[in-house]
Amino acid sequence: MANRGVTIADVANKANVSKSTVSQYLNNRFEYMSEETRIRIQNVISELDYQPNIVARSLKMKSTSTIGVIVANILHAYSTQVIRAIENVCNGNNISTIICNSDDNPKKEKEYIETLLSKQVDGLIILPTNGNYKLYQRLVKQEYPIVFLDRLVEGISTDVVLLDNEKASTIAVEHFVEQGYKDIAIVTTSIIDNITPRIERINGYKNALKKNDLIVNPDYIVAMELDSLDRGLDKVFSLDKKPDAIISGNDLTLMEILKYASKQDLKVGEDFGLITIDEVSFSSFHSPTLTTIAQPTLEMGTEAAEILLSKIINKKPEKSPKLHRHEPLLIIRESTKEKKHFRDI
């Protein structure tokens, strides 16, 4: 547990340097110190478990008119779309944005957070990896402006902007049922790290099946890393009772499903119905056109930016941080046409 009584003076005394030298170290200004001094300060900070007060440091400096945005995977259509909206809001308020991609890697995310803090950004919008609880908690306790996007972290009290994920998969199941489908599978990326959208979408899927008096078949739930999804799909389509419909958990799993179908000569809309959560740019001209559950990404990115800027301007935390849920939208196309004349596979 961190020793909250440790000060910058304590670090300086033990490292036998001045407080200004420690301050320079904390701000990554290593030009005028030797490698030996840098290592000594680093070791003392680790030994004393010193944690600089981010707010106290930032109060000594003027606003940088810059915020940091850390996304989990910049390849997601969701990420690029919310970034666009965040940048629009910030640009309109003369705020610059620094975009970082954590690759869903907690170590990389931590490094980016620390780098952005050292650059004295005025606030952070993060799609959290769920792997840096103590760091998130410290920022919140120090009343540093921070907003989470797309994901919850249990125990961290800050504003979160995200989709009503359970409703998204519920809408998908109910549309399939209306079209005559009964054996519905869901395919998403790994749930090992308890990533909010993946967990909530599977929960919504299960609850919707039960509500419609359909059996929850564990063999129809595929949650794996992207590079393993073809094996998961192989297993599903090798079952005696194959699924007649698939819900894709996001745009990246959609690409894997489409590649698998092409390789196996499976026809979307004929061999199985398909709905993907996340609107994709090619959905309206793919053959067949793809039914999607769209997220209001521009509204979500806009709201996240506006909440953060309000925190920065008011310099006071919200008394009761809120969970801001957004409504999913079903866009019906040809990949979920009424089930009839399906080929035997």
Rank of each mutant, 00 (worst) to 15 (best):
105 N>W: 04
102 S>H: 10
11 V>G: 07
27 N>S: 15
57 R>M: 04
49 D>R: 15
87 E>P: 05
32 Y>L: 07
132 N>A: 11
96 S>R: 12
44 V>R: 06
111 E>M: 09
42 Q>R: 15
30 F>A: 04
12 A>W: 05
128 P>K: 09
74 I>A: 07
115 T>A: 02
86 I>R: 04
61 M>S: 09
11 V>W: 06
67 I>Q: 06
16 N>A: 08
73 N>I: 03
49 D>T: 13
74 I>E: 06
137 Q>W: 06
112 Y>P: 04
143 E>C: 07
132 N>W: 13
82 V>T: 10
92 G>A: 04
14 K>C: 03
66 T>C: 13
136 Y>T: 13
68 G>M: 10
42 Q>S: 14
25 Y>V: 11
39 I>H: 02
123 G>L: 03
106 P>M: 09
40 R>E: 14
131 G>T: 12
89 V>F: 03
52 P>Q: 10
128 P>D: 08
96 S>P: 05
18 S>F: 00
120 Q>N: 15
139 L>T: 13
140 V>G: 10
65 S>R: 14
26 L>G: 07
81 Q>C: 03
116 L>S: 10
18 S>I: 01
128 P>Y: 06
54 I>D: 06
9 A>E: 09
89 V>W: 07
9 A>I: 00
69 V>C: 01
43 N>H: 08
94 N>T: 08
45 I>R: 07
73 N>A: 04
26 L>M: 10
16 N>V: 06
125 I>P: 09
95 I>Q: 14
80 T>F: 00
115 T>V: 01
96 S>G: 08
128 P>T: 10
119 K>L: 09
26 L>A: 03
93 N>F: 04
69 V>F: 00
103 D>G: 14
36 E>P: 05
109 E>N: 08
47 E>S: 15
115 T>W: 00
143 E>P: 08
135 L>V: 13
109 E>A: 05
120 Q>R: 15
105 N>I: 11
94 N>R: 13
141 K>E: 15
19 K>E: 03
51 Q>T: 02
127 L>G: 02
26 L>N: 02
141 K>M: 15
122 D>I: 02
131 G>S: 11
61 M>G: 02
100 C>W: 14
35 E>P: 01
113 I>E: 07
102 S>K: 07
70 I>G: 13
57 R>Q: 09
94 N>V: 03
11 V>D: 07
99 I>P: 12
124 L>I: 01
30 F>M: 13
70 I>E: 11
126 I>Q: 06
25 Y>R: 11
34 S>Q: 01
141 K>H: 14
135 L>I: 13
37 T>K: 01
78 Y>I: 02
37 T>W: 00
16 N>T: 05
65 S>C: 10
117 L>V: 01
58 S>A: 03
134 K>I: 14
53 N>I: 02
86 I>T: 07
113 I>R: 10
51 Q>L: 05
73 N>D: 14
52 P>R: 10
9 A>D: 00
20 S>C: 00
17 V>G: 00
54 I>A: 12
10 D>K: 00
15 A>D: 06
41 I>K: 03
32 Y>M: 01
43 N>I: 01
103 D>H: 11
24 Q>E: 06
106 P>K: 11
20 S>L: 00
125 I>D: 09
131 G>E: 08
131 G>K: 11
114 E>Y: 08
127 L>P: 03
42 Q>P: 02
71 V>Y: 06
134 K>T: 15
101 N>V: 12
124 L>T: 04
61 M>E: 10
26 L>W: 11
107 K>W: 00
120 Q>Y: 15
112 Y>C: 06
61 M>C: 09
